[in-house]
């Protein structure tokens, strides 16, 4: 039996809203340590990796007697989650050999309990080995700032060149109609932690990425005040949104190489 009770349905709603447009069907792999999900977009250029730990406070209850895989159409799951109030407690439940996934939404005052079952899918998405990497550069910045940069620069071109150096990080775009550049300096004297821009630099990195994918990743902005960008020359960039009391949602994007 698998049963996971999340304190806030809004967290699960935000996660699925972040994923459903770029990743259609995905497997939730559930074990005693928690829930993970890994999937690639249809063009195999982007990959997402979700990790929700069972020992974090975000789960009021968590039980997983045997490892199970829940193959879900994320669009359908998004529709079901729209039936939950943001403050509802959501419980996911499935049997050990599941062919349905049950959602239970408890309103705060427990006057309304809703129950939905969805049919599970057989999704043969083989998991990719994501190597642990010591990144040349890790940028921590406000998530809304990153969303705005991607949105603004995508008006002028389809690739952004991210240039990490010791003073900070630059984002540049050059298209037919024009070009744009945004230079972020490391912040030194801001009071609020979540407004800081920090750059941990081991090596300078200059790499280009498709803006349409980065803009799609920023749908996860509501999950966290900050976002972490990890870069190494000629490897995929990692865009990580920490999920308080749960874990994180990571997006990997393969670089574009200039011929």
């Amino acid at each position: 039996m698998f049963e996971a009770k999340m304190l806030q349905s809004s967290v699960l709603k935000k996660i699925i809203e972040s994923l459903k447009d770029l990743f259609a069907d995905a497997n939730f792999d559930c074990s005693s340590s928690g829930i993970t999900l890994q999937d690639m977009d249809s063009s195999h250029v982007a990959l997402c990796y979700l990790k929700l730990r069972s020992d974090e406070e975000g789960f009021e209850d968590y039980r997983c007697d045997r490892n199970i895989t829940l193959g879900v159409n994320l669009g359908l799951m998004s529709k079901i989650l729209k039936c939950a109030g943001n403050d509802d407690v959501v419980t996911l439940r499935a049997e050990d050999e599941p062919n349905i996934l049950t959602f239970i939404f408890d309103s705060k005052n427990s006057e309304r309990v809703s129950k939905y079952d969805i049919k599970l899918m057989e999704i043969d998405s083989e998991l990719l080995g994501i190597p642990d990497t010591d990144y040349s550069c890790v940028v921590k910045m406000p998530s809304h700032e990153f969303q705005r940069i991607c949105s603004n620069l995508s008006q002028l071109g389809d690739s952004v060149t991210i240039d990490c150096h010791k003073e900070g990080v630059d984002f540049k775009v050059a298209g037919e109609q024009g070009s744009g550049a945004i230079k972020l300096k490391q912040t030194t004297s801001v009071d609020k932690e979540e407004d800081q821009v920090t750059v941990q630099l081991n090596e300078p990195v200059t790499q280009s990425f498709a803006l349409k994918f980065l803009c799609a990743f920023t749908k996860a902005t509501s999950l966290s005040d900050t976002v972490n960008l990890s870069l190494t020359q000629d490897t995929p960039v990692v865009v990580e949104y920490p999920i308080a009391q749960h874990g994180y949602l990571r997006f990997y994007l393969a670089p574009k190489i200039e011929e």
């Binding site: 195999h44 250029v45 998991l127 990719l128 995929p236 574009k256 011929e259």
Partner: peptide, 14 residues
């Protein structure tokens, strides 16, 4: 011109 690489180029199927 720039060429978009794919994830499989970097992360192998185990």
């Amino acid at each position: 011109i720039s060429d978009q690489l794919q994830m499989l180029f970097f992360f192998l199927r185990p």
